[in-house]
Simulated assay, not measured.
Amino acid sequence: MFGMKDSQTAGQGAQAPAGTIVDATDATFMQEVIEASQKVPVIVDFWATWCGPCKTLGPALEDAVAKQGGKVKLVKIDVDANQAYAAQLQVQSIPTVYAFFQGQPVDAFQGALPPSQVQEFVQKLAAMSPEAGAEDEGLAQAIEAADQMLEEGDAAGAAETFAAVLQEEPANAAAYAGLVKAYLALNDIDQAEAVLNGAPAEIAHSPELDAAHAQIALARQAAGAGPVADLEARLEADPADHQARYDLATALHAQGKVAEAVDQLLELFRRDRDWNEGAAKTQLFTIFDALPAKDPVVQSGRRRLSSMIFA
């Protein structure tokens, strides 16, 4: 990572295509990260030459990105020489890694992860890339039909179809995620969680199953959500009651008012982004992860959150 400028030499077991592992500065951040992320996910590694853990994480990131063959880009930023965007993203310790896609931050972590977890992190991002391979057409059509059943309220029929797909392809992440959604629609959270826990190890950290984890977490929160009217009254009496605003967002989401829940969490983030260890941003990412990436609520919410982070 340190002093390495030629991306062709990056990676321990694979060569990265030219331009997929680069050094950047505050001056080139918009071009190398924000603009580039319109095409493929971009990982930003904030590091420094004196940082011991960075010397472990950097090569692991480079190796994982090289293995993806251009589906993901890695941008390395020395925080000693480039402090502007590190400050905007509230980088308080290094290494810190952010992931961007379509101009928005979509994931992040701090500290040096084991190589296996770094591989999982990069693989999840690679799955977002337009270059990622398509599923088998026949199974994809069956999954689409099951999704349509869910939208029309036939959760039981959808569950049968998803289960049939899994008989044909036991490691189909989309079918597993669909089966989880079907059981959640049937108000059987325990069974949904059992299905998720039974997924094969090779897809355990796929984007679809990460979304399913988020959906289950939100479903369990919904079970304890308070009355919306009471929470709205508390906020009207004291707009600075952050807990009431957070609880109101949970209650609104439980009623299916996802956009309204996102609005409340964004307002909480605007008022105090550090409240309860950044609970508003964490909950926003949970909601975003539970929805399709192209959902208008997700796209609008990520855009508004990003504008606050970079303000």
Rank of each mutant, 00 (worst) to 15 (best):
9 T>Q: 15
11 G>H: 00
12 Q>W: 13
14 A>H: 11
15 Q>E: 14
17 P>M: 06
21 I>F: 07
21 I>Y: 06
22 V>E: 05
23 D>S: 10
30 M>A: 14
31 Q>P: 08
32 E>S: 13
32 E>I: 08
38 Q>E: 13
41 P>I: 05
42 V>F: 01
44 V>K: 04
46 F>C: 05
52 G>D: 12
52 G>F: 07
54 C>F: 00
58 G>T: 01
60 A>E: 04
61 L>G: 00
62 E>D: 09
63 D>M: 12
66 A>T: 04
70 G>E: 01
70 G>L: 03
71 K>T: 07
72 V>F: 04
72 V>R: 01
73 K>H: 08
73 K>M: 08
73 K>I: 09
73 K>N: 08
83 Q>N: 12
83 Q>D: 10
85 Y>P: 07
85 Y>H: 15
89 L>S: 04
91 V>A: 05
93 S>E: 11
94 I>W: 01
101 F>D: 05
109 F>L: 02
117 Q>N: 13
120 E>M: 14
123 Q>Y: 15
125 L>I: 08
126 A>P: 02
128 M>A: 13
128 M>R: 14
128 M>S: 11
130 P>C: 08
138 G>K: 12
138 G>V: 11
138 G>R: 11
144 E>R: 11
146 A>N: 00
147 D>T: 09
148 Q>L: 13
148 Q>P: 06
149 M>I: 13
150 L>Q: 03
154 D>R: 05
156 A>G: 10
157 G>W: 02
166 L>S: 05
169 E>W: 09
173 A>W: 00
174 A>K: 10
177 A>Q: 01
177 A>R: 01
179 L>H: 07
180 V>S: 06
183 Y>E: 08
183 Y>V: 02
187 N>L: 11
189 I>N: 01
190 D>M: 07
192 A>S: 08
194 A>F: 10
196 L>M: 09
196 L>I: 05
198 G>Q: 11
199 A>Y: 10
199 A>G: 07
201 A>I: 11
209 L>K: 01
212 A>K: 04
213 H>E: 12
217 A>P: 10
220 R>E: 06
221 Q>C: 09
224 G>S: 09
225 A>Q: 02
229 A>W: 11
230 D>W: 13
232 E>K: 15
232 E>R: 15
232 E>A: 13
233 A>W: 14
234 R>F: 13
244 A>Y: 03
248 L>C: 02
250 T>R: 15
250 T>H: 13
251 A>Q: 01
253 H>V: 03
256 G>D: 03
263 D>V: 08
263 D>Y: 03
264 Q>C: 11
266 L>A: 04
267 E>I: 14
269 F>E: 03
271 R>C: 11
271 R>T: 15
275 W>K: 12
278 G>P: 04
279 A>R: 12
282 T>L: 13
282 T>G: 14
284 L>T: 00
285 F>E: 04
287 I>V: 06
288 F>N: 06
291 L>D: 04
294 K>S: 15
294 K>V: 10
294 K>L: 12
298 V>F: 00
304 R>W: 11
310 F>C: 10
310 F>L: 15
